[in-house]
Amino acid sequence: MAENQTPILSVRDLKTYFFPDEGTVKAVDGASFDLYPRKTLGIVGESGCGKSVTARSILRIVERPGRIVGGAILLRRDSGNGRGTEVDLTQFDPESREMRQIRGGDIGLIFQEPMTSFSPVHTIGNQIVETIRLHQDVSEQQGRRKAIEMLHLVGVPKPERRIDEYAFQLSGGLRQRAMIAMALACGPRILIADEPTTALDVTTQAQILDLLRHLQEREGMTIILITHNLGVVAEMCDQVVVMYLGRVVEQGPVDAIFHAPKHPYTQALLRSIPSIHATVRTELPTIAGSIPHPYNRPTGCPFHPRCPDFMPGTCDRSEPGLHPAGENQDVSCFLYHPA
């Protein structure tokens, strides 16, 4: 699927480091991946793997003391005459006019916790209208009509009444729908969803995932879905990027990742998740140890202290690069590419 299409967004060797007083945290340390139009790319990993910082880097909203120290984020836009233009988002100032246009205009974002993403002192309608008017030259009235239309689109019942409510008056599921309405109000081509269903109950989660799929079909959106939940990835994504301690350890089509995982971390992660299909009351295979503290990053391959296939002298000495292994699948491991 990948070859004959141009990616809409390419991340190349992205490095986003944080510089607190205690030292340097390499939150994202050389991540590369491509995003293809109308597809859903899943970025999956556990806490501290850099998946959220990657998303924030794309939108240039990394908070101090963090900053992008290397790499490129290439966004391709259609300039109408059949040819596209390409901009490198790392070259813009985060506060620049261009970046503001891109945020919300080209790329929308929905966060994990919709309660903290909405202002508690403004109605959700005011906030959606503000977003619309920031990007489009429309009157208050037109903005309001558009906001109601958006709320209707994402399945908020009685949108003409709900628009004047505050975030705390809505249930978790409705709040997340309102958040999606706000993110999509200006018709972005790319939607970044950072743990969009983590704070929700399973039946509400099913509703929101359904909505995202439906909107993608209808609007032709491209989605980056960031999650730790492998079940959500399996249900939603076309391509998957697996991250561990700031690095992409494996990427490929969703079926290959789940049925032919190459990297020992991906394999162990898939084995260790509690599954609803498992036998009752059985021990789960586990991954030894826990995720290292960011200040104590292991040398060499970041996964080597926990890896069952650890090769002394190799994995703890040099860092593997991301190289092809199998069809459309890349893996960063010395088992496949000897040093």
């Binding site: 399973v202 099913a206 399996a234 609803i276």
Partner: peptide, 19 residues
């Protein structure tokens, strides 16, 4: 509830019951 749990297998993309 059982049907709503996302299954970690893309081949099982369910005909989910969405409440």
């Amino acid at each position: 509830l059982l049907s709503a749990v996302p299954k970690p297998d893309p081949r099982l993309r369910a005909q989910r019951i969405v409440l």
